[in-house]
Simulated scan of single mutants.
Amino acid sequence: MVRTTPFHARLSELNTTGLWGHWAGYLSAQKYVMSAKHEYFTVRNAAGFFDTSPLYKYRVAGRDAERFLAGVLTRDVRQCRPGRAQYTVWCDDRGFVLEDGVVFRHSDNEFLLTAAEPNLGYLADLVGRLDVTVEDVTEAYGMLAVQGPRSRRILAALAPDVERLAYFEHCETKIGAAAVTISRTGYTGDLGYEIRVPADDALGVLDAVIEAGRGHQLKPFGEQALLMTRIEAGLVLIDVEFSSSRLAFTDHDRVTPKELGLGWMLKGLDADDRPFLGREAIRRELAEGTSRWASVGIVLDWADHDRVYQEAGLIPPKDETPLDYESMLYDDEGERVGYATSLMYSPVLQRHIAMARVRPELSAVGTHANLELTINHQYETVAAEVTRLPFFNPQRKTA
């Protein structure tokens, strides 16, 4: 059965395209106007709002809640104080990533964990004798992301507490009569916030946000614009940059945190007081240098890109729609050295960019590679070079 989010009644009025996709069983707008680029520029230049309600939400509570999550999550949740949030992953006992999400700490003994895929059964099976409960509260809340350089001014007019929030902090406040949680988080790589609101109050909160956004060019944006912003921000997406180890058929489809570019999460790995799932396998990987891949950014040589298309008698495309398939990377001798997972033309950078995976010894910034494209039904390669992620990282995001 296809479900609708608590915001759907209003969003369906705003969706002039009638284009909806399915996300975790919910209807999710692909785009609200015919050009997703307009929605993208709204986020980058003003502010947009996106319905993130389909994310799974798990309330983890009890005397042993911190101990439980410290044993499951790869990143050390003990370093997350109440009022803070962490982006994190969790792994299997071989050190391969199962899922990623954000954990919000509300108190010493209460957390909320988000995930793109269902994880309730998996988490519940790990509880054992610990004094902790894991509850799926997905349907109890709507979640609305308000993203872009004007997002702070818009939300501060409704909830002045927003002004004091630092990056990845959250607070309990009110919008009108509705009790909400507002966090300085998002998936666009820009200044942005997310509002968690009880489902019954969702429409009133959305209407208040829309009203506060008048004069600030606030508009809704859909999944297509979101995917564009997340690539520029270098943010990974399940089933694109990685597959859950639980569902992968072979190790070719599995990846470790280090290989996924999340080695920064592994601080305190050698502390014996936190034997989280996968720790020993990850320690061996780092000690023995057995990582198969490194996650990097790739920037195409614009002149070589245009040359290849012009020689084929074509106008060089500058298409911002991300490709939904992998593109191989080769060295100058034709040996495969990696692959791009997400490739697009960035409107704000005016360059073709890609999130990619290469052999570790080829991950240094400036390393040359050749990206494979299909032109006139045959393979061609375009010169490219390795760069750092993220591609787009404005100071306002964390200032």
Rank of each mutant, 00 (worst) to 15 (best):
M228I: 12
S244H: 02
F276H: 08
R283V: 12
R230K: 08
D270R: 15
P257T: 06
V255Y: 06
K267E: 04
G268W: 06
A287W: 00
E285N: 04
A248I: 08
G234E: 06
W264T: 11
D273Q: 10
I238F: 09
L247R: 15
L247V: 07
F242N: 01
L266W: 00
G278K: 09
H252Y: 08
K258Q: 11
L237A: 14
K258I: 12
L266T: 12
D272E: 15
F276D: 01
F276P: 03
S245I: 01
E232D: 15
A287D: 06
S243K: 13
D272P: 04
L260C: 02
L235V: 04
F242D: 07
G289K: 05
D270G: 10
S291H: 04
S291W: 03
K267I: 08
A248Y: 03
G263R: 08
K267F: 06
S291P: 05
S245D: 01
S243V: 12
W293H: 14
R279W: 07
D270S: 14
A233K: 05
T229L: 15
E285H: 04
S244I: 03
T256Y: 01
S291C: 01
H252D: 14
S245C: 10
F249A: 10
R230D: 08
G278S: 05
R254T: 11
L262H: 00
D273S: 13
R254I: 02
L247P: 05
D270Q: 12
A233D: 05
L260T: 05
G278I: 08
P257L: 07
L237R: 15
E280V: 05
E259N: 09
G268N: 06
R283C: 07
E288H: 10
L266P: 05
T250C: 08
I282N: 09
L227G: 01
P257M: 01
D253Q: 15
I282A: 04
F249G: 09
L235H: 11
V255W: 00
L262C: 07
H252G: 06
D239Y: 06
V255H: 02
I231H: 13
L266C: 09
T256Q: 03
D270L: 14
P275F: 02
G268I: 01
G278H: 05
